[in-house]
Amino acid sequence: MTHHPAPDGRRPPNQGPKAAARNRAALIAAAREIYAEQGLDAPLSSIARRAGVGQGVLYRHFQDRDALAAAVLEENVRQVEQAAGAEGATFSGVLGVMTWHLTESAAFIGLLHSDGARRDPGTRAHASVLSGRVERALRGHLPDGHRLAAADDLMLAVAMVSGAVTGPTRQERERRALAAWRLLDVGVGPVRPLEG
């Protein structure tokens, strides 16, 4: 976070690694929000401002726009994996967390449509790894004989739903995502971020 001089003119003490970790987390959270509102081409200055840090802090953590988007993607995937690893996790519950990320993060939607749309082979390979992690998290809770159990059906359904997630507000995007799952006859648990 940006520190302003104290009333007596002294700067607050440097909080070192604690502040760095806090700033990085704030930047990722801000990027997710800004991307949901303005898309992936939103000004990085808006993200820094929302996080409460200067642009220099943003560039200390992320060398460019792609690095920041990759960090948001990684955090999204990590949360889906954590939801899948939680005690008592169910397919519909994990799907609810993943659907929340679809409605919140344009970067996450981009990941799920990574086949050829990516600019360079390295980014495409990274997106493929992340997509595979999402599939494993979901497939680990897919009930035997589920309609999406066939080889490509699960991620094809996810891609179809993510394609329907459009709209000017998070509520509209969620409404459309749930309607798409309903059309596929797939039950989804509460659409919410990972709790805890």
Rank of each mutant, 00 (worst) to 15 (best):
F108R: 09
V77E: 04
V161D: 04
P143W: 12
G122P: 01
L138W: 05
A89C: 07
F108C: 04
D153K: 08
L130R: 10
L156M: 06
Q79L: 03
G85W: 00
E87I: 07
S114D: 08
H126V: 01
A137H: 10
H101K: 12
A159F: 06
A86R: 15
S105K: 00
G88K: 10
R124M: 14
E75M: 09
A159S: 13
L102A: 15
N76V: 08
H101E: 14
P143R: 06
R119T: 13
Q82E: 15
H141F: 06
H101N: 14
V72C: 09
E87W: 10
A83W: 05
A125D: 15
M155R: 11
V97A: 02
L142Q: 05
P121D: 13
D153G: 06
S114R: 15
S162F: 07
L148S: 08
A149T: 14
R118D: 04
R147W: 05
V80L: 06
L73A: 04
A117S: 13
A117Y: 08
G88R: 10
S92N: 09
T103F: 02
V97L: 05
S128P: 01
L95N: 00
S105M: 01
A70K: 05
T123I: 03
G93Q: 08
I109V: 13
H141S: 08
L154P: 10
A127E: 03
G122E: 14
G85Y: 00
G93F: 05
G145N: 03
S105L: 00
G132H: 09
A106L: 04
H113E: 02
V134D: 12
G116S: 09
G96F: 12
A150N: 13
G85K: 01
A86C: 04
G145I: 03
V158N: 05
H146S: 06
T103R: 08
A150P: 07
M160F: 12
P143L: 06
A151M: 06
R119Q: 12
L142T: 10
E75V: 05
S162E: 07
H101I: 04
G93A: 11
M160T: 11
R124V: 05
G110A: 12
G116A: 10
G145K: 06
T123V: 02
N76G: 07
R133K: 12
S131V: 03
P143E: 07
V161K: 04
A159P: 00
G85L: 09
D153Y: 03
V80I: 15
R124P: 00
L102R: 14
G132S: 14
E81Y: 13
L142E: 10
L111C: 08
L95G: 00
A70D: 14
A127C: 14
L73M: 12
L142V: 09
A84W: 02
S131N: 02
G145S: 01
